Computed example of a mutant assay.
Amino acid sequence: MTEKQIVVLGAGYAGLTAATRAGRHHRVTLIAPEARFLHRIRQHETAAGHPEHRPALAELVRGRGVHHVRARATALDPTARKVFLDTGEALPYDTLVYALGSRTAWHGVPGAAEHAYPAERAAELSERLRTGVPGTVAVVGGGATGIELAAELAEAHPGWRVRIVAAGQVGGWFSAKGRGHVLRVLERLGVDVHEQSAVTGVDPEGLTTGRGRIPADVVAWAAAMDPHPLAAEAGLAVAADGRAIVDGHLRSVSHPEVYVIGDAAEVTVPGTGTLRMGCATAQPMGRYLGRVLAGRTDRPFAYRYAVQCLSLGRRDGLLQLIHGDDSMRPTVFTGPVGRLAKAAIVGGVVSALR
């Protein structure tokens, strides 16, 4: 173990993966307020009332040179190389791994933050649906998170009427076969699909959209994610969407002693393009950076896509084959095969954290 001060901000897919690997060779300080890992790609299951799968961080870092500090980073001074915590402590570093990820984006929609349940409040949403008088729940967002959430809620709570509301098409980025399967499953589960319906307001009675009112007793918000603002506030070079711009080795282009990984980073890979946010890209960044910090590679980060997958309730799913640049192939696997493939991928994520 070396005495080099490596600090990792964030214990998500990227940060925790980097910390456990770097911790084989260095002493690492991991800054995160939570005691347990948040398996974010399973939040739709939590919202539906299924048991949570949240291993303790202490177990995940056991046997590594990783010291977990339960605190939240409030400020960053790249010039002085210090991280300021909500405990009042100023923590120095030689190398910083910035992996604070992303959070629900409200995009200034009036009433959304006040009246909608974001993914971060999945357990509260579950309790509301379990104890409330059944009515209508509207899921805002036609992306993967929204689709999985709508399907899971409809299956788990047949007494509730579920609606999915999208500004564009629900699952519109999939191949024709993939999108067709998603729509058929939603129809089978009784989910009302509202497409081309951008939400312009949320209130206790439901949604206002560009195509009129959509009544709802409960609103779940799965529309978009924003990167944590601390990178921009600290003066790191950021893109228009707030993600920190990095070079081919995942170093901040403005502060090379800071590595940025996961949803917090705008990463452009030759031949692949600018990577989208998500576990599928975050964990490979963490693995790569762990090797870099361990001195096991000096090659630039490389990444190619392979599949996209969805769970559609407990018994159905979609595995969509894709090209390396994230464009769709025509081949899909659906039904139990798709569901089992998604379950295997999700289960492998936790194993790969170490």
Rank of each mutant, 00 (worst) to 15 (best):
V267T: 15
L289N: 05
H255D: 10
G159L: 09
S197Y: 07
R24Q: 01
R24G: 00
V193F: 05
R243F: 08
V162H: 12
V246L: 05
A198M: 08
E148K: 06
V97N: 04
R64I: 03
Y288C: 06
V162I: 15
E152T: 04
P33L: 00
V133N: 12
D325A: 08
Q169M: 13
S254F: 09
V349G: 00
A35G: 11
R188L: 08
E52Y: 06
P256Y: 05
H25S: 05
A35E: 14
V97R: 01
G210S: 13
P158G: 04
G49D: 03
G10K: 01
R243D: 08
G141R: 02
L321I: 12
L207W: 04
V202F: 06
H107L: 10
R243L: 04
K82H: 13
G324K: 10
G168D: 15
R24A: 03
L250H: 12
A220F: 15
L293H: 00
T2D: 10
A151F: 11
T17N: 01
G313Q: 02
D86S: 08
R276F: 14
A75P: 02
I261E: 07
T29M: 01
I147D: 13
P227S: 07
H107Y: 03
A244C: 12
H50C: 06
A90Y: 03
A341I: 02
V165K: 07
S197H: 13
G295F: 08
G132H: 09
D316V: 00
R291C: 01
A302K: 14
A18G: 04
A19V: 00
P300V: 04
A150Q: 13
M1H: 00
G273Y: 09
R296I: 00
E148G: 11
R287L: 07
L100C: 02
H107S: 13
L129F: 13
M285R: 06
A341Q: 01
D203S: 10
A22T: 03
L186N: 02
G88R: 01
R299L: 08
T209Y: 06
E127L: 15
R213V: 14
R103L: 12
I261F: 07
G10V: 01
A56C: 04
R130G: 11
E148I: 11
A73K: 07
L321E: 15
I322C: 08
T136W: 15
E205T: 14
G142V: 15
L60N: 03
V28Y: 00
R287K: 09
R179S: 12
G111H: 14
H26N: 05
E187Y: 14
A80D: 13
T200V: 12
L100Y: 03
T274Y: 09
A22K: 01
R243W: 06
E266C: 08
R243G: 11
D86C: 11
V346G: 06
A222H: 09
R276W: 12
L189S: 07
P227Y: 05
R213Y: 10
P204R: 00
E205Q: 15
V137H: 10
A341T: 01
R296H: 03
H157E: 09
P256N: 07
T46D: 10
G135H: 09
